[in-house]
């Protein structure tokens, strides 16, 4: 099975299609127990007690719209505010990132200079979302959808060297053994460090590039 089996979501066509890509960043409205459990595991059960002090998480939906369609940001905001497909207002806080804006955007708590992007190569959520948005809600301009998790580690004060921080962040990610990595299983999940701001389209492009290097069996 190849990555392109994700119908309607083949990210390799992003560049040539020149879509407008927006992003929805979603956080838990209350305590994020997933992030808390991950932090607890990294600090208490693994070897990050001296380097890690906090860990925040947000889900990011990247939505690619046909360029000739109605304003992508307005459509994204409509999907967020008038449907329950992406955001449950009782559980989530969100912000919409316009196609010309950069991620990370704003001053959400926990966001730092170094993020960790994790996603599943074959995300089972994407197809039903595409069907719901395109067929039931009639937003046929939506061409691609991709869901990522963006983790924001908070480092201890004595870990000031950017290279050291990068090493710590890297070692938190790919699960290679019981002792190494937690946030992604490289056999079905991709990951990379987000070290600079980027547009939603650039983020989607980075995912595309990373996926091009692997093949899931």
């Amino acid at each position: 099975m190849s990555l392109s089996d994700n119908a309607n979501t083949d990210p390799r066509s992003v560049e040539k299609d020149e879509m407008k890509v927006t992003a929805i960043c979603i956080r838990s409205a209350g305590s994020d127990l997933v992030a808390y459990s991950a932090l607890d595991t990294l600090v208490r059960k693994m070897s990050f007690q001296d380097s890690l002090v906090s860990l925040w998480r947000e889900d990011v939906w990247l939505l690619g719209f046909a360029t000739g369609a109605q304003d992508a940001t307005e459509t994204t905001e409509m999907l967020v505010e008038r449907t329950g497909v992406f955001v449950n207002p009782n559980r989530h806080r969100h912000e919409v990132i316009r196609s010309e804006e950069k991620l990370p955007h704003g001053t959400q708590r926990g966001r730092g200079e170094l993020g960790i992007v994790v996603w599943s190569y074959e995300d089972p959520e994407i197809r039903p979302v595409m069907v719901a948005v395109r067929e039931r809600l009639g937003v046929e301009s939506l061409r691609k959808a991709r869901r990522l998790t963006l983790w924001w580690p908070g480092f201890s004060e004595n870990l000031t060297d950017p290279d050291d921080r990068r090493d710590v962040a890297s070692s938190m990610v790919a699960t290679l053994s019981r002792a190494k990595g937690l946030l992604a299983n490289p056999h079905f999940q991709g990951s990379f460090l987000l070290e600079k701001t980027c547009s939603p389209a650039e983020l989607l492009g980075s995912v595309t590039e990373a996926e091009g290097k692997v093949a899931v069996k």
Binding site: S120, P124, S177, R178, H187, F188
Partner: peptide
């Protein structure tokens, strides 16, 4: 000790 596979989404 190496994680050599996954149980991924159906």
């Amino acid at each position: 000790g190496r994680v050599e596979m996954a149980l991924g989404p159906n």
